[in-house]
Every structure is written in C-alpha cells, then in structure tokens.
Design a protein around this nucleic acid. Structure first.
Lengths: 237, 237
DNA sequence: GCCCGCCCCGCCAGAAATGGGGAGGACAAA
DNA sequence: TTTGTCCTCCCCATTTCTGGCGGGGCGGGC
C-alpha cells in the first residue's frame, strides 16, 4: 500500500472546507519531500481559487505582474493533455525568462511538474510540484510518483468542484428538445433564417424557441444563451 | 505490482495505430472480466472515433436512433467531473428508459461505469465498462479498480490525442489579448456597446476585434465565434 | 530599418436580431 | 378535467449587428 498517497487522500477526502486545501498541499509537500505544492484553478478572469505553499510575496508578485498571461506553464498545460515537466516547456520568450528569474528569486526550485486537470464547463485547474533537483533525479521522481500525483490532482479538483465557488454544482435549466436544437444550430453559426430552414419551421417559431431558451438560461441575449448552453454542457458544440 | 493494469498499459503505450485501440479494449475487458469496454470520443457531429467491444448491431442502432442525444451517460458525464456509476444517473426520461431496454436487448449488462476525460480544445471522451452484476458486487468492483480505470482512461485518451483523427490536434487559432477580452465580454452577454464600455474603448474598435476574432476562428457570425472560442477552450466563461 | 501584428478611432447603409403583442392545437401529468 | 408545457404561426417598431471604407501609433522580430 502506498502510504504517502493514501494519507494525503484520506485527509483530503475528509476535508470540509476550503481551508483544508492549504493543509493538504503542505501534507503533500512533506510526504513527497518537495519544496512547493500548489493547486490552483484558472478561469477567464484569472484565478478563482488557489492553495499552495508558495510564499505570499510570490503569489502577490505573480498577480501584480500579470504573469498568468505569459506563464509557459499555464500556456503549455492548457494546450496539452499530459502533465508537463517544466524543463520541456518553451522558455524562449523574453517575458517568460524574466518571470523565471523572478520566480527563482522568490524561492522556487529549478524543477517543476504540473498536471492539468479539466472539469465540466471549461473548468481548468493545475496541480504543481516544484523543487530543487538535478534533471536526472527529477526524471526519476516523476517516473516514480507520476501516477500518484495524477490521482492527487484529480482528488484535489474533485474536492474543489464539490464546494467550489458559487453554484458550480447547480443543475443547468432543462430546455425542450426544440430549444436545444435551436441552440445547437446557432452554436454552429447558422442565422435564424438558416436555422429555421434546417429545423423546417418558420423563422418566427424559431424565435420563440430562442426567446424561451434565453429566458430559461437567464441569458441577456442570444449569444449569451448559446454561451451558457455550451458552458453548462447542455449542448455540445 | 498491479499486473492487470500494467499489461494493459504497456500494450497501449506501444500501440502505433488506431486499430490497436480495439485490441486494447478487448484486453481490458478480459483482464477485468467485464462484458464490455469502450473508449469513445464525442464531438460536434456525434462520434468521431470509438473503439470497443459493443456489437456492431448496437453501435449501428445507437447511431441510427440518435441515442447520443438522449443518453443519460453522455449527459451525466458531460456535467460531472467524477466517473459515474450508471445506477446513479437519471433514467426517468421515457426516451432514456427505452434506450436502456434496447441496450439490454443488444447484449449490454445491467451495470456500467463511465469515466469522462477532457482534453484541450474542449475535447471530451468517455471510457466505459459494462457488465452484468448485482449492485453490491459492482460497487466493490468500482471500489477496487476505480483508480486503475482512471489511469487507463487517461492513457487511452493520451494515445487517441497523439495520433487522433485529422486536425483535431491542430492548435486553436491564437487570438490577441483584446480579441479574447472581447470574446469573453460577449460570452458574458454584454452587447457591443456594453462590452466597449467595459473595455474602455470605442464601440468601433471593439467591432474590429470581434471581426478579427471571427475571421481567425473561421466563424460565420459573432455567436458562432463565441461558441467556437468557448468550445475550443480559448476562453472560459 | 522595414514589415507585421496589435491597438485605437471614424463614417455609412443595409441586413439581421430583438422585444413586445397575439393565437390555436397536441399531449401528458395532476 | 384542468393545468401545464410544448409546438406552431403571425405582426409591429426599434435596436443592434454586419461589412465595407478610411485613418494613425507602437512594439517586436527578421
């Protein structure tokens, strides 16, 4: 039995508040003997929630300098499915290298490993380990613990979604079949006239569906309605 | 060492063609002694790629009857982060219950477990096990093998993304920061005037961004552009 | 140093969407 | 039976979007 993983997991599973995340990251850090462990969750406006062992100074710096917009880790993970070893990322951009120097100055180790985790509604989170080590040792570490870390990352995310920021677990409104069909047509770029033709109904009728869907979704306009339908997952493209 | 998992994994990792997926699902089925194992990958037009042990008749039936649109498994997984036991899904809809009877008639077992996997650009896949068992036995099975199955599901998806169906791995078009901001505003339901005010630019400038984004995304209109931006994951509501 | 992409602004006219209003029939659950 | 939700159709005026045209400044990469 893998006790490092299990004790971290049982602690996390029992957690009943967001504060527990902080402690959980510290536990993982201590169990796996790395310098930093961070779970954070990125969205449109930047960062919705995060917990980790980075110093407050570095977190502030990160936000202040808007590093989120140039961080190769964020960028790389966002377009990959697999976890990334920081060494494999593209650090060629000047802004990225500056950020890296800054990070080092704020106590980050030279090695990092970040696991992207994606949830419903476009939710996107990162689970990161950082430490000081030479390349070979770090490779070995990842080889040995990679699978554990993936489980951990998922468990963190599951918990975060569970009592995450407002109403994440709210069930989306149920649209009628025709309303859904209308939303799908619009999401595919059809105009109302085209969509009406596709569904073989009058354009007026289609409008009724769109209006109705809009109200049910609490959307301000058609684009908003389609966006909501997509991001709540009631339609798939 | 967990040999069931390891042999499945090594085989899959060595796979060099899509045909290997078929064999891989069969291996998993035999290792874990279940009736069916399926990996499939859903997108706009329905199913782009799938491999599994379902009978051809059932797959055809599924497509013919457009079950994708009413399948509680698809629906449930799409809104959840965690794997689902089919028993826990909402089978109250009439269409769903009919589909279920049909599925049983086509050789599916009474128990199922499906793991949703999400990749970059809104990619969404499902890894499913199905078999005949009583509830308690199935709970035990999931308890015992759940973690293995998650690793397997991810490995399947990694492979699928690696040499996935054409152009799927194409990186989504890169929008400029302002274009992204414009898309985000629209996805939040703001009108052009409101969005322009929010970004503190003239409405015309905003239009330029929207147009530009629309072209880059290959979208037919604003709603389409926002839909694409959302479903490729370049913006998060 | 030049080019390209990004950022910002203006005007115009036609096309399209929006926000009200109204009506009737089908079907299913309470 | 009644209530409700869905599906279907129609009219109005107003607002908003779309697709063109034009302009200038700034910064980074080749």
């Amino acid at each position: 039995m893998n006790s490092k993983l299990e004790t971290s997991l049982t602690f996390l599973q029992a957690a009943s508040s967001l504060e527990a995340f902080q402690t959980a990251t510290e536990r993982v850090r201590d169990h796996y003997r790395v310098r930093h462990v961070v779970y954070h969750w990125v969205n449109a406006e930047g960062e919705r929630f995060g917990a980790g062992t980075y110093s407050g100074a570095w977190v502030d710096r990160y936000v202040e300098r808007d590093y989120l917009r140039m961080d190769p880790v964020i960028f790389g993970c966002f377009q990959r499915f697999t976890p990334v070893n920081w060494k494999d990322l593209d650090w060629s951009a000047k802004a990225a290298r500056e950020m890296w120097r800054d990070a080092r100055a704020h106590g980050l180790g030279n090695q990092g490993y970040t696991i992207p985790v994606r949830g419903p509604s476009g939710q996107f989170a990162l689970f990161t380990l950082n430490t000081e080590a030479d390349d070979d040792a770090w490779e070995d570490f990842i080889e040995t613990n990679g699978r554990d870390l993936m489980i951990l990352a998922h468990e963190f995310n599951r918990k975060a979604l569970e009592f995450g920021p407002g109403g994440e677990n709210a069930t989306p409104p149920a649209l009628s079949p025709r309303e859904l069909a209308a939303m799908r047509c619009l999401a595919r770029g059809l105009s109302r006239a085209q969509a009406a033709a596709e569904l073989a109904i009058s354009e007026h009728t289609l409008r009724v569906y769109i209006e109705s869907a809009r109200h049910k979704l609490g959307a301000l306009n058609t684009t908003h309605a389609v966006a909501r339908a997509l991001s709540t997952g009631i339609i798939i493209v």
